[in-house]
Design a binder for these strands. Structure first.
Lengths: 246, 246
DNA sequence: TTTGGCTGTTGATCTTCGTCAACGAAAACA
DNA sequence: TGTTTTCGTTGACGAAGATCAACAGCCAAA
């Protein structure tokens, strides 16, 4: 499935303009090898709330998040659910080397994915140890992140959970903003890509408890809410203190 | 650092008798390549409670658990702690490709490790894509396990947490027992490698709550305690039911 | 033998967070 | 435009689990 009949350009046209070309795992591929991936890629769009795959779906594709936010979550038989991963642009979604997905996945915001059929992706990994190495490093980081999350779930109070969540989201938004030449010393203002329900499912709390803790942070002058989803961190140090040592 | 001056035997002697030779990631190495690992390996023993490395220690070695149980944990500034991983024989401990460990590690029982200096281990990984692939698969599994743990921490009740912990430990002990030719239909009896404190730190509970839930399971006839650490699961189905869908 | 430390259990009480309910604002829709 | 739905906030109340305290069994050291 080559996108145009002419002689292969150095880049696939979609890769040339891809905002995550130099941040995602594909960045380890030299231009001349990038085709091994771009030949099998399909860009897909998902609307907020749309499932990337179903419960016991086969793991059909591996994808790189181009824009938007994806949530990975688990569910108990009675409907209780827990978000176990948030994926941002340049992150990798989908379980390689397994016939089944181990989690649900849903677009938390409108999302664009760069998708590769899983089996073919695994073939490319085999041909390019560099790429597989990049995936290994990314997976090790994901594991570190998951474990950092675990101490929050198991041992932090509701207030600490909310504070560290906001702290982390502020950090994330600063990182992605770095492309634009902004002084990072500014008071961070950012938009949460998650609803209160999602935040609660992230932190193992109820929406009411999340809401109350937002209110408290507002009352204490730590944050301001431009609207329910847009947060200004007035006092980053206080927020970090409330979040407890990471 | 070759162990003997004579011509290289097919196996290092310690590998020949190693109980995890065919289960750990080194199993993907053909006998003739096994030396690339065994040449750099050092067996170390740790006593129950002994730290494998300190807080901000450099990541000096990667190891395979030969016997015993290792716990990985995180800590908040005020001492609250959370176990984020349990490692059993054939599991891999230590963070490859990072200068620092991201967790504390401690021997939960007397433990024997097969250790490799990290840098040299990473070199061997580079030379053997098969080995690196095995590490990737193991890391992906670790990530799946961490995420399964997360829904328990965030969303299960104390009773469900204890039940699923016991269920999981019973399963683990059955797996390792498979070497001996035992009918698996038996009522499982096994020994917990963890104290109540450790179990509480696993599940994000206090020791009192753990203890009360053990008592309840005993009262309901789901388990019997031979002693505080030795558990007989009288009613595996009931235990699984109490643990909620995994 | 006694002593002291460690581990685990149990009871009484307190706190945090979940549950239930009402309501307001914004967005979606007809 | 009004109507419905979704999302977030707030209050009253109750339950799950934490905290505080006492104690028993076990083992090692004196």
């Amino acid at each position: 499935m080559v996108t145009s009949p002419e002689l292969a350009p150095v880049f696939d046209r979609r890769c040339e303009t891809c905002p995550v070309r130099h941040h995602a795992i594909c960045s380890v591929l030299e231009n001349q090898h990038c085709h091994d991936l771009s030949d099998i890629m399909v860009h897909k769009h998902f609307q907020r709330g749309q499932a990337l795959w179903g419960e016991e779906d086969d793991a059909e594709f591996i994808a790189i998040v181009v824009t938007g936010t994806v949530k990975l979550f688990k569910m108990l038989s009675d409907g209780r659910q827990q978000i176990v991963g948030l994926l941002f642009p340049s992150d990798c979604v989908g379980r390689a080397f397994s016939e089944t997905q181990q989690t649900f996945a849903e677009a938390a915001t409108d999302t664009e994915l760069c998708c590769f059929p899983r089996r073919q992706f695994e073939q490319v990994l085999k041909q390019h140890p560099d790429l597989e190495h990049a995936l290994l490093e990314k997976t090790l980081n994901d594991l570190d992140n998951a474990r950092n999350w675990m101490i929050g779930l198991g041992r932090k109070t509701a207030g600490e959970k909310v504070a560290s969540f906001l702290s982390e989201m502020a950090r994330k938004s600063e990182l992605t903003k770095c492309n634009q030449h902004r002084p990072p010393a500014n008071v961070p203002i950012f938009m949460l890509p998650l609803t209160r329900v999602d935040i609660a499912d992230c932190l193992g709390l109820t929406i009411e408890t999340v809401s109350r803790n937002f209110t408290k942070l507002r009352a204490d002058g730590v944050i301001k809410s431009v609207d329910a989803r847009t947060i200004e961190v007035c006092d980053p140090e206080a927020l970090a203190r409330l979040a407890e040592a990471e």
